[in-house]
């Protein structure tokens, strides 16, 4: 009895506040816009009995999805979100791997401190960390001031409100998600494996390529998914650091909802976004599962 209750409470909570809302989104994405409250039609009227339900379903259609394919804003936004996510994942990996590697090779008594230094930014507000770059990257910002002062450039660079700023912001805020899984994979690695590789004729670089990289692969994969999946739907970074040319689907959805108040289209955007994310999410789950099995 107690066990049933223990299972039921979180189960029902998640069903009601996680699953049910999805079906509502799905339903509204099939509805039409209306100048009413709520601003869509039809609404389900159970008092009409079976006929009412039938009537309700007959009014649902795929109009909004057709609309998404017709207006190139949407598919361009999806494409550019995926592109930005992929590029910034690679950039984060390039920046993060050497840091994770150095942490794993650091003296053991330093490692908890280094870990804390990596995690600390993660606990501070995401919004503030993105905001910090606004002052650095703007035309009269600190980076331009530094570059002008050193004489590397003579006119300020435009970085803020471009995709470059978005990449910098993503790498900066998502770096811990890349470092931590790679670090934990590298730290578990037996140091004698590298010695064995060298003993068998590898140079340092070959040993790194043939042993270290393959053994840290689960960490790399986990880190890449942890960065890529949320970045596809990212909203804060493109809206603060990106410009009018930065197309990301999270921002489009936000504007569709808050500025245009077009709930059915916003819902359709969300449904498609979710469909795009299903693939990497499933792949990610499988990678994690494989890893936990390997550890057993």
């Amino acid at each position: 009895m107690r066990r049933a209750l223990l299972i039921a409470v979180p189960y029902v909570w998640l069903l009601a506040l996680f699953m049910v809302p999805f079906f509502i989104v799905l339903k509204i994405s099939l509805s039409d816009t209306a100048l009413a409250i709520p601003p869509y039609t039809p609404t389900l009227d159970l008092s009409g009995g079976w006929a009412g339900i039938k009537d309700f379903f007959s009014q649902l259609d795929l109009e909004n999805f057709v609309w998404l394919t017709e207006d190139d804003l949407y598919w361009k936004a999806y494409l550019s979100s995926v592109k930005i996510a992929l590029i910034s994942t690679v950039l984060t990996l390039i920046v993060g791997y050497p840091i994770a590697y150095a942490m794993a090779r650091a003296p053991e008594e330093w490692r908890p401190t280094l870990m804390m230094l990596i995690i600390l930014p993660f606990w501070t507000s995401f919004l503030i960390r993105v905001y910090a770059w606004m002052g650095i990257l703007s035309n009269e910002g600190y980076l331009n001031q530094l570059l002008l002062w050193t004489g590397i450039i003579s006119t300020p660079l435009t970085i803020l409100n471009t995709n470059t700023a978005v990449y910098i912001g993503i790498v900066y805020t998502y770096l811990p998600f890349m470092i931590l899984p790679i670090y934990s994979a590298l730290e578990r690695m037996d140091g004698s494996l590298i010695e064995a590789a060298e003993d068998l004729g590898c140079s340092r670089l070959q040993a790194f390529w043939l042993v270290t990289i393959p053994l840290s692969r689960p960490g790399i994969i986990a880190g890449c998914f942890l960065v890529m999946i949320p970045v596809i739907g990212e909203f804060v970074i493109p809206s603060l650091l990106g410009g009018s040319g930065t197309l990301m689907i999270g921002k489009v959805l936000w504007e569709e909802f808050f500025s245009n108040r077009d709930w059915p289209v916003a819902s359709a955007v969300a449904v498609v976004l979710l469909l795009i994310l299903v693939i990497p999410i499933v792949l990610f789950q499988r990678n994690q599962q494989k890893q936990t099995e390997a550890e057993k």
Partner: peptide, 28 residues
Amino acid sequence: PNKRAVNMMFQSYALFPHLSIWDNIAFG
């Protein structure tokens, strides 16, 4: 070490976990 005509069998064996037995032996 990688240029020495000396090979070592490690106490922990240090077998590469991502490679098959065949590939481990072929490694050097």
